[in-house]
Design a protein around this nucleic acid. Structure first.
Length: 538
DNA sequence: CAGCCGTGTGAAGTTTTCGA
DNA sequence: TCGAAAACTTCACACGGCTG
């Protein structure tokens, strides 16, 4: 019995201990929960703060590289900076400074070498784009101009074609810059080679590009490109005209080639056989018969066979073209050469002025502008006013060399007031005087450098401000210690007091105001400049 | 993990600018 | 026009991240 009582006591004590332990645990948990509850608000605030901070820090960082490669937007920005004149060495600094300006920390750097690579990559991408646009376009025109620097010839090249805007899907005409290429010499033959080289390079790049493999069907051949050429835009110099003729011939050849290749692939062996027999007979006959043909070296035979093959293609091409409708033929034969609008404007002035000079010889009673002989010829031409007064060859030569009228007067004014050489003429003195007296900033039209439209501009200024120019010449005379004009200044003074010369100035000025300026605006519709500062020789 | 590709570095060479 | 200095370009090489 006693044993049973002891067991019950032990059980009771154990249960009590368990309850006490549970109670302690519950109290501990309750305390913990209370504390956690007390801290909860602070914790939430801190977590929000921490997350906010992390997000802000992340948002403030701009990584130039992604997976070790510069982001495309970075490459574009670098190319833009370089294009607007930032040296490759300063691009990195500018990006970091701008990053700070916008509250961002830029991560990574762009070295000068990387800048060069982005530009190279951009150039290749641009060529691939142009290649794709050529492949998609039905036709295109080329334009260009050349110059030389340090005895090396350079040609600037553009292409105009209809392209689809990939964002809007709308088609519009665009002009793409193809680059400036150095040329071996200034000859027309080299120019054609350069065009072939440039278009060939575009064709190769497009054909080899992953872009073409992904999106483009087939490859773009040089011959196919030339077949789409429908015109050339250039200035009026004879070399450019010759280039256009050569490109036209090239286009005709390539049209025959492209059509011939197509026809060749469409024909079966039986149809082709007569063409081959005929061409082979012609080839063998050309070398002197079968015996002579057999004596030729294998390499020469191969060369002649290649020529024969080409002639068959061209023959088939010509046949194909003749079988086409007039509409189809028109576009395949179309080739337009267009000259520079400003040259045409210039030529109308030249033609008009020549007609004006001619008028004097046909109407002897009309007083002519005074002769404005240079210092060397003035003594020789003493008493000579026209061909009728010429007494010997020396005078005839001097008269031939001596100018008169509006053009000579404008040339003199340009030489005195805005000479092409900085050391000659009055330049700043004239500008300073004009600003002080007329109260207007003015530089005399650049007739010392012969440029488009400058003679007409000069005529307008000389007529409108005639008294001011006379006043300036008087000022120059008074300013000099000797109180004497130079020979050129004296000539200008005389011209500005000669009624026939002033009459010519008036005619040229009125022509420019009523016709020339309005005509020059037409090329401006599609171009950027009304009067490009390109030299022309009178 | 080897090979490829893109990148940075620094030297060497070239071109441009500036002042006499 | 010349030479020095500055600016710019090109090149080889090493490094590191990515990919298969």
């Amino acid at each position: 019995m006693e044993h049973l009582g002891q067991q019950a006591e032990e059980k009771q004590a154990k249960a009590l201990a368990t309850i006490n332990a549970k109670l302690a645990d519950t109290c501990k948990k309750a305390s913990m929960l209370k504390k956690r509850d007390d801290r909860a608000i602070g914790m939430l605030e801190r977590t929000i703060q921490r997350t906010k901070q992390a997000t802000l820090t992340k948002a403030k960082l701009f990584h130039l590289l992604e997976k070790g490669i510069y982001k495309e937007a970075v490459c574009d920005t670098v190319r833009y900076l370089f294009r607007v004149g930032v040296s490759g060495n300063y691009v990195n600094g500018i990006i970091h400074v701008l990053g700070k300006l916008f509250g961002m920390d830029v991560v990574g750097n762009v070295s000068c070498s990387s800048v060069a690579r982005f530009i190279l990559k951009g150039g290749i991408a641009a060529k691939i784009q142009v290649g794709y646009e050529i492949s998609e376009a039905d036709t295109f025109t080329l334009s260009g101009d050349g110059t030389s620097h340090c005895a090396i010839n350079y040609n600037s090249c553009h292409i105009s074609l209809k392209v689809d805007d990939h964002t809007t899907g709308e088609a519009s005409h665009k002009t793409r810059f193809l680059g400036i290429m150095p040329s071996l010499d200034g000859s027309s033959a080299e120019s054609i080679k350069d065009w072939e080289k440039m278009l060939g390079n575009i064709s190769d790049l497009l054909s080899c590009s992953p872009f073409a493999q992904r999106h483009h069907k087939g490859t773009l051949h040089l011959a196919g490109m030339f077949a789409k050429l429908v015109g050339v835009n250039s200035d009026h110099c004879s070399k450019e005209k010759k280039d256009a003729q050569a490109l036209k011939a090239q286009k005709e050849d390539t049209v025959h080639q492209v059509l011939g290749e197509k026809k060749f692939s469409d024909m079966d062996d039986d149809e082709l056989l007569p063409h081959f027999i005929k061409a082979r007979e012609k080839m063998v006959k050309a070398v002197g018969g079968e015996d002579a043909w057999g004596n030729l070296a294998e390499t020469e035979q191969a060369e002649r066979k290649a020529e024969m093959f080409h002639s068959i293609i061209m023959e088939l091409g010509k046949e194909s073209l003749e079988l086409m409708s007039d509409d189809e033929k028109r576009i395949l034969k179309l080739f337009i050469w267009t000259g520079c609008g400003c040259h045409k404007g210039l030529n109308t002035v030249r033609g008009g002025y020549a007609a004006m000079v001619q008028y004097y010889s046909e109407h002897g009673h009309i007083p002519r502008p005074i002769l404005l002989a240079n210092q060397d010829n003035v003594a020789v031409l003493e008493g000579v006013t026209s061909e009728d007064d010429v007494e010997n060859e020396v005078q005839a030569r001097a008269l031939e060399m001596t100018g008169s009228g509006e053009i000579k007067c404008a040339q003199l004014a340009g030489a005195v007031l805005n000479n092409k050489l900085d050391k000659k003429g009055h330049h700043d003195l004239f500008r300073w005087w004009w600003k002080k007296v007329v109260n207007k900033a003015f530089t005399f039209p650049d007739t010392s450098n012969t440029r488009f439209g400058s003679y007409c501009e000069a005529a307008i200024e000389l007529i409108v401000h005639l008294d001011r120019f006379k006043e300036f010449l008087s000022f120059i005379q008074a300013k000099k210690g000797t109180h004497r004009w130079s020979h050129m200044e004296q000539n200008l003074w005389d011209a500005l007091h000669d009624t026939p010369t002033l009459c010519e100035l008036l005619v040229l000025g009125l022509y420019a105001e009523t016709v020339g300026k309005h005509y020059s605006l037409i090329p401006k519709v599609t171009g950027r400049h009304v009067m490009p500062s390109r030299r022309v020789q009178w």
